[in-house]
Every structure is written in structure tokens, then in C-alpha cells.
Design a protein around this nucleic acid. Structure first.
Ligand SMILES: Nc1ccn([C@H]2C[C@H](O)[C@@H](COP(=O)(O)OP(=O)(O)OP(=O)(O)O)O2)c(=O)n1
Ligand SMILES: [Mg+2]
Ligand SMILES: [Mg+2]
Ligand SMILES: [Mg+2]
Length: 838
DNA sequence: ATCCTCCCCTAC
DNA sequence: TAAGGTAGGGGAGGAT
């Protein structure tokens, strides 16, 4: 009540509501959602007003210049990197003149980013990082103070904003013309696809409709289509022996030829050991961006192209975009109270061959031809298939398979490159539709969710499913399939039966029969390891698994896993449809293209990874106490991996360290990571993968100032290590002091625990938290950042748009549009009321 | 018992 | 050439 009224007061040109709800009260944005949104909208409004006033060079905020509240009223800056004047001075200016200063970047709390000139290479990062907020020179603040008014920021921009490209993309998605969306990504595979790739082809055309060409026809000729009517067994058998990834050292094929390659010159290092060929010497000149040896910015570039990174990070983007939907959807609904009277009804819905379906919207004539999505079309290549459509699956092609294996079983396979922006858009549309029709949605992945429709009485489950599928197909031009059953397990199994483009219901009385011959591997939670273990016990179907006693299962697999097996093979599943639970860990790892010549290379990489992890923590508003370094080390005797630039057969070496105080400081994370790495005592040349994971998370304190003080305070309370009274963090970090290393060893052997905290010096705690972040600049991550502020939208126009489009725009604005529309609606009523009273 | 850390396993 | 990530569940075993 209270919060919703205050949010509506601040969300609008709230001239007649109280001028400014007192700002100094800073509540945690994450504990009070209403005020969080209110604050967010307030920020956007002030930004809008600052922009609007730019032509006249006057601040349009009526109160701010007149009533002494200060010229920076409503302005909240984040200072990135070193500036002149210093960030502390800028902070002083802001606070003195009614503005705010944020120590940490947050899209919701920052209205302007202040940054000094940077080298070109860093510009891109800033651009991505700014997320649509103006990036300005410090002079904007200084000059404004001097002029005693808020000056237009336009002429102080550090980065010119040309977001037109993206806006067009976004609009094209709304109106179903999909000509532009992947032009930019087309070059990805065009180089490798030898002109056989229809994506590359399209680049040379302007027509929105793909025309057939000779090359094109040749690629698709002679493909057989898959016989449609597969029965249950057939649908599930592929799951049994799909194991294709064997790291055997077949010496024959695509081994890299060892060449005399020129030494990399931008990182002059001369201690490359002689004798055996080094990592650097194994590379060819054309490898520029494919390994850590040649690409100083490898981490960022790698993630930009990684499909697994895309699907792995999607959940957090969803969390942010649909946070308001997640809030109202409390999962405590029917936990069995009403289920006695009303049978629980669950729908599982999953897009059909998602990545392929998305691209085939532009090539409908290929729908019945074998098509896959993959980085490479090279029939010798070890690139992995991401998704294969159903005709392709008829040839045994499935996700994770090497493209050379796929092409060898199906030479006519058409391969498309990735289009992550498009997947993101379709996923948004998908979830928009789900949330529109159901308030109990459990997101599983970017193309898959559970719905609890027990309380959607107005429609039979089957009709509900077909209604939703129809809307998804019409909106996204991609098909989804649905499973309907009495619990999550059976609904998920039903979906497999339903695919492609269908739906399937398993009523309770059919459950036993359905499961009898079902291969156990088809059960969720049973993968290769469990499958093998059961196979040695001569168990391969659910029917056979049912014959094993619960006690035996407990003994062999533990209580929880034993229960799961016992329940699932009987179709029992107690889980409820739930919203996303709180995050427990945040991490980043790279196990491809990792090749180091020496420790320096490795530490450079750790530096980038620390920044990456730090920025991910900050995006989530989290800090962490435990840092885990994960390293993959080439196993003794293992050859160069069969997969190009892969990690091959490795030993995993993981070790964690818990800090006295939670952090998100990249400098501190780096220091710990280096220490742990040093404690491994391994040769950097043997490293094939590196990861950093942060756990023991805490939600960041709303008041960062207080937090920073606490950190410093508690760090200062820790007694300094003997013989380490100098606090030169740079030096200590750089030389990786051997005493620290020993301390870590001791700790790991259980001799020290609390004392291990001593190995961090005070400088780390006091180190300046401001720094240049290396944010990911993948376009899908900024998907909604380059739009105009939501306050620019004209509600009277918006409200007349088709619901579909409103919904899309709402997603683009992370749900803020609906809020604003509601406020607009309420305000209209108020206006009328006020008018009638006057 | 409960909480750790260090794994392995699973899913997309 | 090619982009083998991410996060949660849970078991084993040790510390408390
Ligand atoms: N090993 C995997 C599994 C999945 N994906 C990506 C591509 C898929 O399109 C998407 C969704 O995964 P699904 O398991 O839902 O597979 P599909 O949607 O492709 O096929 P299906 O029709 O079986 O759902 O995730 C991937 O890149 N690599
Ligand atoms: Mg799918
Ligand atoms: Mg899926
Ligand atoms: Mg399984």
C-alpha cells in the first residue's frame, strides 16, 4: 500500500504530488521493491529532464535552482578510473550541490558516468559498460559548478552514442521484419563457411526475403526428411548412447603442425624455455584471437562468442528483466492443501530446436531440411553443434557433437552461425507470454519453463497449452512443444514426447505404463555417470529400477539421490513450481583457448578474470567471502587435445579461500587468485583452463559508504602479519611473496585457519575501489540499454498499441512500462477527479 | 546434528 | 580452425 502509492507519486511528472520524497533515507534497493522501482524511475525522470533542458542550458527541475537544494539535484554520478579532478573532489562537488555519488556502478542508481579520456581499446568497454547512460568528461561537473547551473551534458560526452543500429533491430523485432537483426553477426561464420552459408549470402542482399541462389540450392539438395511418427521408445533411445566425446589421442587427424612462428611482440617476454616446443611456437599467425597467447583481451572476446556462456548467463539477465513478475509470483501457493481437492496441473513448455528455429524464421524453405547452428561449417572441424533441427536429428546429429561428425553423417547439413541477440529477443517474447497468462512460472532456461496452472480454472490444461503455444508461434515465429501432467517430472517427460511442435498429456493413470519401458537416462537427474552405474547393475529401464528397494538405493547412492531414483521411476515428484531462488555463487571460467608461456601470461589472464567476476558480482549487487580458483592442468602424458584449442584430458585443481569480509573488489580478488595459483606449484605452460568462483554471497549494503567503512574497519582490526608493515599492495601482489605462499600451503593442510586471514595486507582493504571495468560488450547483454528512457515514451500513444507490442516494449524496459502505464492510468483518473473538484 | 571444503554430476 | 559456461544438488569426510 504505502510503497505502491509512493512509487506512483514519483513515477510521473509528479508536479502535484510532494516535490521530492526525502532522498537521504537510503533503503536497500533489494529489500523494498516498491521504493527501489520508485528510485529507479526517479532517476530516469531526472535524466530525461536534464536532457530536455539541454537546449536552453537550464535545469528544468523547478525546485532545484531556486530553493537552494543544489544544481545536481537528481543527478547521481559514478566515476570510472582516474580523473582530473579526482573522484573524491568530484564527490565533494556532487554532495555539496545536491547530487549523489556512487562508489559502485549500478544502472538503477547512477544517472551519469564520469570518465577521463581513455585509449581506444578501452572505449569499447566503457561503451558497453555505460548501458545507455551518458559517459561524460569531469569538466561537466566542474563547469556546472562554476556556472552554478546544471549544464547540458551533450557537449561533454566522451562516447558518441550511435544506438540507431540497435534500435532498428529492436523495432524490427516488434513488427516482424527480420532483415537487419543478424547482418552484423553474419560475418562470424561467413569466413569459415566458404560461401556455402546462407547467412553469408544474405549479407550481399538487401531484400528481406531470402532468394534462392545456385550455391544455396546446392547446399540443401538431396536431403531426406525424417519420418514423423516416432514412438516413445524411439524418441528416448537417442539418449542412451549419445556419448560421442572421447578424448582419445588419435594422432592422425587435425593435429597442429609445429611451426617456427614469429614471437609475439606486444608482450615482450624472453624467458621462454628452450628445448621442447613452447605454446607460442605451436601457434600460427592466423590464430590472433583464438588463444590467450595472442589476444590480450581474450576473456572478453571469448565470452562474446560462447554459446554456453550465453545460456549460462541467461538466468541472471532474466532475473533482472522480469524481476517485477518474479516478485508478485509467490510460490507459497498450493503446497498440497488445495491439491487434495484440486489436482495439481503442470505444463512444461520448451522451444523446439531453439537456436535453429530462430534462424530458420528467415529461411522457412529449409524447415524440412537438416539444419544446425555451429561456429564452423568445416567438415574436418571440431566446432560443436549447438542445436540441430528434427530432420538433422534423423541423421543422429545432436547438440555437443563435433561438426565434422555431423557433416560426415549428413554431408548436406546446412550450418548457420549464432545470433545471440535474436535468441535473447525470442526468449523475452517467450517469457512475456508465459507471465501474461500464468502467475506461477518457473524459468528453467532461455527456451524452457514450467507453469503451474492448477488455479487457472477457466481453461482446460490442454486448451491452455495450445493457446500458449499458438501465441508463442505467432509472436516469435518459432514453435514450442508442451507436456502436461500432474507434476514437474511427468510434464517434462511429456514434452519430449510432444516434440516437435506438439503437446502431450500424461494423466495419472497412464504414468506407470508410460514409465515401464522408459530408459532411465531419460529421467532428469540421471546422466551418464548414474546411467553407467545403474547399467552395471543391469538396470536400464524405469520398470527395472522399480524392483530395487529403497534401502539398497540409499546404500548405493546416498539418501537424496536414492530417494530421487526411487520416486522418479514411479513417476513421483514432490517439487513445486517455484520462482528463482537466491543466488548462491557467481563465477566465470574459461577452458578453451587457454595457453600460457609463463606465470606472467597466467596472471594477466587472472587479472581479466578477476575483473570479469567482480563486474558480475556488481551486476547482481552481491559481494562474496569465499573465492575459489579452479585450474585445469594437462594430465601427464596427455597430447594436444582432439578439439581445437580445447583443454583435453586434464586434472582439476581447485582450492578456495574465505575472506574475513565479503568483497567485490577486483584487485583483492586478483591478489587471492594469484596466491592460490602460486600455492599449486604448477607450470603455467600446463594450464588448460582457469575459473574463479565466488560464494558465501551477501547482498550488497544499500549504503556503500557505510559498507566501505566497515570493510576498512574490520580489515584494520586484523593484526598485521609479522614483518609486513609496509603496505605497498602493488609490490606485494606483483612479487607473490613466498611467505604468503607458504601460509596458504599450511592453511590447506589444516594447520592454520583463522590465521590465514593475516596473509592479506591492509592495503588491499584500502585499495581504491574505483577502476576500469572490463564489461562484456556482447550485444545481447545490453539488449535494453540503448533505448530512450522510459519516460520518453508517450503513454497516450503506447496505450493504443496492440497488447503484443506493449508487452514487448515492457520487456525491453524491464517491466517498467507496465508500472508507468498503471501510474498514467491512475493519474488520468486523478486528473479528472481534480478537475471535477475545481 | 550442522557446517565447512572439495569434489562429482547434471542440465541447458 | 573456433569460442568445452554456469549454477545448483548432493555425497564424503572432517571440524565443531
Ligand atoms: N549442449 C547444448 C544444449 C543446448 N544448447 C543450446 C542450444 C539449444 O537450442 C538451446 C536449448 O536447449 P534444448 O535442450 O531445449 O535443445 P533444443 O531447443 O535445441 O532442442 P529441443 O527441441 O530438444 O528442445 O540451448 C547448446 O548450445 N548446447
Ligand atoms: Mg528446446
Ligand atoms: Mg530447453
Ligand atoms: Mg537424463
Amino acid at each position: 500500500m504505502r510503497s505502491s502509492s509512493s512509487s506512483s507519486a514519483s513515477g510521473l511528472p509528479a508536479k502535484r504530488s510532494k516535490p521530492n520524497p526525502k532522498t537521504p533515507v537510503q533503503r536497500s534497493p533489494f529489500t523494498d521493491f516498491g521504493s527501489y522501482m520508485a528510485e529507479k524511475n526517479r532517476k530516469l525522470r531526472s535524466q530525461f529532464e536534464a536532457e530536455a533542458s539541454s537546449s536552453s542550458h537550464l535545469n528544468s527541475e523547478p525546485s532545484s535552482s531556486g530553493d537552494g537544494k543544489g544544481i545536481f539535484q537528481g543527478v547521481s554520478i559514478y566515476v570510472d578510473g582516474h580523473t582530473v579532478p579526482s573522484s573524491q573532489e568530484l564527490r565533494g562537488y556532487m554532495l555539496k550541490h545536491g547530487g549523489r555519488f556512487e562508489n559502485y556502478f549500478s544502472r538503477s542508481r547512477v544517472s551519469h558516468i564520469i570518465c577521463s579520456n581513455l585509449p581506444d581499446s578501452k572505449m569499447r568497454n566503457i561503451r558497453a559498460f555505460s548501458r545507455g547512460l551518458p559517459v561524460l568528461k569531469p569538466a561537466w561537473v566542474v563547469d556546472s559548478v562554476a556556472a552554478n547551473k546544471l549544464l547540458s551534458w551533450q557537449s561533454y560526452q566522451l562516447v558518441e552514442y550511435s544506438s540507431e543500429m540497435y534500435k532498428q533491430q529492436k523495432l524490427s523485432a516488434f513488427f516482424g521484419c527480420k532483415t537487419i537483426s543478424s547482418l552484423k553477426d553474419a560475418e562470424l561464420a561467413s569466413e569459415s563457411n566458404n560461401g556455402m552459408d546462407p547467412e553469408g549470402l544474405e549479407k550481399s542482399k538487401v531484400s528481406p526475403l531470402p532468394l534462392k541462389s545456385k550455391v544455396f540450392d546446392r547446399t540443401i539438395q538431396g536431403s531426406d526428411s525424417l519420418e514423423p511418427g516416432l514412438d516413445k521408445e524411439a524418441k528416448f533411445t537417442t539418449l542412451l548412447d549419445e556419448r560421442t566425446k572421447v578424448e582419445a589421442s588419435t594422432s592422425s587427424s587435425a593435429q597442429l603442425s609445429i611451426q617456427n612462428c614469429s614471437r609475439i611482440d606486444d608482450l615482450s617476454v624472453d624467458d621462454v624455455s628452450s628445448g621442447e616446443p613452447t605454446n607460442a611456437e605451436c601457434l600460427q599467425a592466423s590464430d590472433m584471437h583464438h588463444s590467450t597467447l595472442t589476444d590480450a583481451n581474450f576473456v572478453e572476446n571469448y565470452f562474446k562468442h560462447s554459446r554456453l556462456h550465453f545460456i549460462g548467463t541467461w538466468r541472471n539477465r532474466y532475473r533482472r528483466r522480469f524481476c517485477n513478475m518474479l516478485k508478485g509470483n509467490c510460490s507459497k501457493g498450493n503446497v498440497g492443501f488445495c491439491s487434495s481437492t484440486n489436482k495439481v496441473s503442470v505444463i512444461h513448455i520448451d522451444m523446439d530446436c531453439f537456436f535453429v528455429s530462430v534462424i530458420l524464421r528467415k529461411y522457412p524453405e529449409l524447415l524440412d531440411k537438416p539444419v544446425a547452428v555451429c561456429h564452423s561449417n568445416n567438415s574436418q572441424g571440431t566446432a560443436e553443434i549447438s542445436s540441430a533441427n528434427y530432420p538433422a536429428r534423423g541423421y543422429g546429429i545432436s547438440a555437443g557433437m563435433f561438426v565434422r561428425d555431423a557433416k560426415s553423417s549428413c554431408p548436406n547439413l546446412v550450418v548457420f552461425p549464432y545470433d545471440f541477440v535474436a535468441y535473447e529477443e525470442v526468449a523475452d517474447q517467450f517469457y512475456c507470454i508465459l507471465h501474461k497468462h500464468c502467475n506461477k512460472v518457473q524459468a528453467v532456461s532461455c527456451d524452457e519453463a514450467f507453469l503451474d496452472i492448477t488455479e487457472c480454472d477457466d481453461l482446460e490444461p490442454e486448451n491452455f497449452a495450445s493457446m500458449i503455444r499458438k501465441e508463442i508461434a505467432e509472436t516469435t515465429q518459432c514453435t514450442a512443444s508442451a507436456g502436461i501432467a500432474g507434476n514437474l517430472l511427468m510434464a517434462r517427460l511429456a514434452t519430449k514426447m510432444a516434440k516437435p511442435n506438439g503437446q502431450f498429456s500424461i494423466p495419472p493413470e497412464k504414468v506407470e505404463n508410460f514409465l515401464d519401458d522408459l530408459p532411465i537416462m531419460a529421467l532428469p537427474g540421471i546422466g551418464h555417470a548414474l546411467g553407467d552405474k545403474l547399467k552395471t547393475r543391469k538396470i536400464s529401464t524405469c520398470g527395472q529400477l522399480r524392483l530395487v528397494s529403497k534401502a539398497t538405493l540409499h546404500k548405493d547412492f546416498g539418501v537424496k539421490v536414492g530417494d530421487m531414483l526411487w520416486n522418479y521411476c514411479r513417476g513421483i515428484d514432490d517439487r513445486k513450481v517455484e520462482v528463482l531462488k537466491e543466488t548462491k555463487s557467481i563465477g566465470a571460467e574459461v577452458n578453451w583457448g587457454v595457453r600460457f608461456r609463463n606465470t606472467m601470461d597466467c596472471e594477466h589472464f587472472l587479472n581479466n578474470l578477476s575483473k570479469e567476476v567482480s563486474s558480475r558480482l556488481r551486476e547482481c549487487g552481491m559481494i562474496a567471502r569465499t573465492i575459489t580458483l579452479k585450474v585445469k592442468k594437462r594430465r601427464k602424458g596427455a597430447k594436444e587435445p582432439v578439439k581445437f584449442m580445447g583443454c583435453g584430458d586434464c586434472e582439476n585443481i581447485n582450492r578456495s579461500m574465505t575472506l574475513p569480509v565479503a568483497t567485490d573488489d577486483p584487485t583483492l580478488i586478483l591478489r587471492i587468485a594469484k596466491q592460490i595459483f602460486a600455492s599449486y606449484h604448477i607450470d603455467a605452460k600446463e594450464v588448460r583452463g582457469v575459473g574463479l568462483q565466488m560464494s558465501r554471497l551477501e547482498i550488497v549494503d544499500g549504503n556503500r559508504q557505510g559498507h566501505a567503512q566497515n570493510v576498512i574497519e574490520s580489515w584494520l582490526k586484523i593484526p598485521a602479519k609479522v614483518g609486513e608493515e609496509t603496505v605497498d599492495s602493488q609490490r606485494v601482489a606483483a612479487e607473490s611473496s613466498s611467505s604468503e605462499e607458504h601460509l596458504l600451503d599450511l592453511q590447506h593442510h589444516g594447520k592454520l585457519h583463522e590465521n590465514s586471514q593475516l596473509c592479506f595486507d591492509r592495503a588491499a582493504a584500502c585499495s581504491d575501489a574505483l577502476h576500469v571495468n572490463l564489461f562484456n560488450s556482447s550485444s545481447y547483454e545490453n539488449a535494453s540499454s540503448e533505448l530512450p528512457p522510459v519516460s520518453h515514451l508517450d503513454m497516450s500513444v503506447i496505450k493504443d498499441l496492440p497488447a503484443e507490442i506493449i508487452s514487448e516494449i515492457n520487456v525491453a524496459y524491464q517491466g517498467k512500462l507496465y508500472d508507468l502505464m498503471k501510474k498514467h492510468h491512475d493519474d488520468q483518473k486523478n486528473n479528472r477527479l481534480i478537475k471535477s473538484l475545481e
